[in-house]
Simulated scan of single mutants.
Amino acid sequence: MFISETYRKIASDGLWNNNIVFGQNLALCPLLAVTGTATNGLGMGLATLVVITASNGLISLTRHLIPGEIRIPIFVLLIAALVTLVDILMNAWAHELYKVLGLFIALIVTNCALLGRAEAFASKQPVKHALWDGLMMGAGFTLVLVALGAAREISASGTLFANASLLLGESFRFLEVTVIPDYKGFLLMALPPGGFIMLAFLIVGKRLIDQKLAQRKAQSILVNEAITE
């Protein structure tokens, strides 16, 4: 029971409560730069997910061997090695997506969220918990990237996951959808200011949902107390 509760809390933190973007306000540079389309957001999110999961696992596995005085440089070195590996693999197997994302793949190294999870969680937890934390944090970040990219793409061009088959492979062609036929487009949403505007809407939406959930929880507590009395 304790283990299941632990995994549930890690999942809720990574996906919602302590989400990299909504909860920690980190990784905003790649978030706003590559989310012109949902396809780009998905590609960047999956790359980050692989790196943060692998780095969490490696750091947890070697945490007793890393001297505390030099742990941060070692964490950065491990993360940089993993990012380099992902960068090479994407260049080889998803070259078109690699060209679109460009420098932002290498800049995953500077993503404070990865180093933050390494220091705050992976270096203090068992490997299973660290891997699960990395997976959930990466999945939460990917969901925000895809949501923001989808909102901007639909607003800008009326499509969803455009060029998915070209960037991610032929097996992703089923994702390509024309949401608004004969749409003239709204250029602002494809530009950086559009990213800021749409991100603000997403943050407001999350906070409204959190408020509703808090109100329902409070009402449920009052009802239970009234029944008990």
Rank of each mutant, 00 (worst) to 15 (best):
V204N: 03
P126Y: 07
T6K: 08
F174W: 12
T110G: 10
M136K: 02
N91G: 15
T39F: 09
Y183G: 01
T35Q: 09
L77C: 07
G149E: 07
L97A: 05
F104A: 06
A120R: 07
R173I: 00
A81S: 11
T6P: 02
A120K: 09
K184H: 04
I52P: 04
A139E: 03
I203T: 10
A81G: 13
E229P: 11
E170G: 02
R63F: 00
V179K: 04
I3K: 12
L115S: 01
L148P: 14
K184F: 00
V83F: 03
N91E: 14
S123D: 01
T84I: 14
T159I: 09
F161N: 06
N18R: 07
G169P: 12
G194H: 04
G116L: 08
T159M: 10
G140H: 02
V51A: 09
V109L: 08
L28S: 09
L46V: 08
F201A: 15
A33I: 04
I10V: 13
F104V: 04
T53C: 09
F172D: 04
S157K: 13
G195S: 09
G57T: 00
V177W: 10
T62L: 10
V51K: 07
T53R: 01
N224V: 06
I154V: 10
F121K: 09
S123V: 07
F2V: 11
L167R: 05
P126W: 06
I52E: 06
S4E: 14
S4Q: 14
S155P: 05
M90L: 12
M90H: 07
N18E: 09
L213H: 10
N25M: 15
W16E: 00
G134L: 11
I70N: 14
W132N: 12
L135N: 02
I227G: 05
V177K: 11
V177A: 05
T37V: 01
I221R: 13
A122L: 04
E170P: 02
T39N: 06
G185E: 02
A122C: 06
L97G: 02
L101V: 05
V127E: 01
L145Y: 09
K217I: 11
A164L: 10
A226D: 13
S12F: 08
T62Q: 02
I20Q: 00
A130I: 13
R173L: 02
E176W: 05
R8Y: 12
V76W: 05
K128G: 15
V146A: 09
A33Y: 04
F172G: 03
M1H: 11
I74N: 05
A33H: 09
A150V: 04
I52S: 00
E225H: 12
L61H: 01
K99Q: 06
Q219T: 02
Q211M: 07
N163A: 14
T228H: 13
L46T: 05
L131W: 05
L32W: 10
V86P: 03
L131N: 00
N19T: 08
A33S: 14
I79P: 03
L213P: 14
A11Y: 02
S220V: 09
L58G: 00
L97D: 04
Y7K: 05
L32V: 10
R117M: 11
L107S: 07
G138H: 01
G185K: 03
A200N: 08
T178W: 03
S220N: 13
A118H: 01
I72G: 13
Y183R: 04
A156R: 06
L145T: 04
C112K: 09
T110R: 03
L103M: 06
Q211V: 07
G23L: 10
G185H: 01
E225N: 14
K217C: 11
R63L: 01
